[in-house]
Write a protein that binds this DNA or RNA. Structure first.
Lengths: 153, 153
DNA sequence: TGACATTCCGTGTTATAACACGTATTATCC
DNA sequence: GGATAATACGTGTTATAACACGGAATGTCA
């Protein structure tokens, strides 16, 4: 029997409702998973937000994306993408150039260094994810994904 | 058919593995749920971390808890609990007093105002949680909780 | 075409998170 | 009992998040 959330959080009273317990379970699980990923990124001096930007830009291939397109593809809300990109540009991971078609936009692409870094992280990331979910078989993983998708409605 | 994570994040390529998709699903769901809760807390000038401290302290009854006990009961890692408590003390939500048994410890309890605030939030929080998970029935909620518990190992 | 609204982006500022370190108190061990 | 280690907490500092605002470019509509 795996220890449940109440003992994890040293909580004495039962949860008010299943929905409440589900919320806390999602939040607690996310925190643990994120900690593992962040430890993996730390030696590369990457934050999770920066890593997500790298993956988003890799998905855009050489065409690149403007700031708001990047923002909309990020997993968590991020109201200050400009300065996030500032730091990544200073680190030589991305390259920004003002768009010629719409001069309001700024197109962002990966540098060779950025591309190499995100590629290099694929294998350890995959290993970490497998490790994190090793307790669940394929059927259970699919079920978990389906239930979360359903919750997001 | 609910839209899946790839379309949510406007991602074109399939996920590398089920474990990877599960991680992103948990992260994305947590972000959405958290946004809803934070919107609810905002009018009360409470951050989610502060609200969690209020609930932890309510769970401790009148005995109170020292800083590290609070930290260990929080859902997400929080390395700067001292100043989090500073702000809550300044807002009149908590009360701190140095322990007499172990003078290294500082015992923290809810003020009447803090207790009233957290009690007052129970009903809207419950409604929000029910709303967030309204797509799932009791069996599915239990299944989700079980799978997340299993993942946390 | 000109006024107005909208979109895209950056920035000033404040608040908070994160990390490392220091001090006071207690526990441990000889 | 005294030196040493361990624990609990706070703080100095830097980095990042969050919010609101403003300027530049584009779209809209009379």
């Amino acid at each position: 029997m795996t220890p449940d959330l109440r003992s994890e959080l040293r909580q004495q009273k039962p949860f008010g409702s299943l929905a409440h317990e589900a919320f806390l379970s999602v939040a607690r699980t996310e925190a643990l998973l994120r900690d593992g990923i962040e430890r993996l990124l730390e030696p590369h001096e990457l934050t999770l937000a920066q890593y997500n930007v790298l993956r988003v830009l890799r998905g855009a291939e050489s065409a690149g994306l403007c700031r708001n397109e990047i923002r909309d593809r990020l997993i968590t809300r991020m109201p200050d993408v400009s300065r996030l990109l500032d730091r990544m540009e200073a680190a030589g991971l991305i390259h920004r150039v003002r768009s010629t078609e719409d001069r309001r936009q700024v197109n962002t692409t990966l540098t060779a260094r950025g591309r190499k870094l995100v590629d290099q992280l694929d294998a350890p990331m995959a290993r970490e994810h497998e490790r994190q979910f090793k307790q669940l078989d394929a059927k259970q993983l699919k079920s978990l994904i389906d239930l979360l998708t359903l919750a997001r409605g």
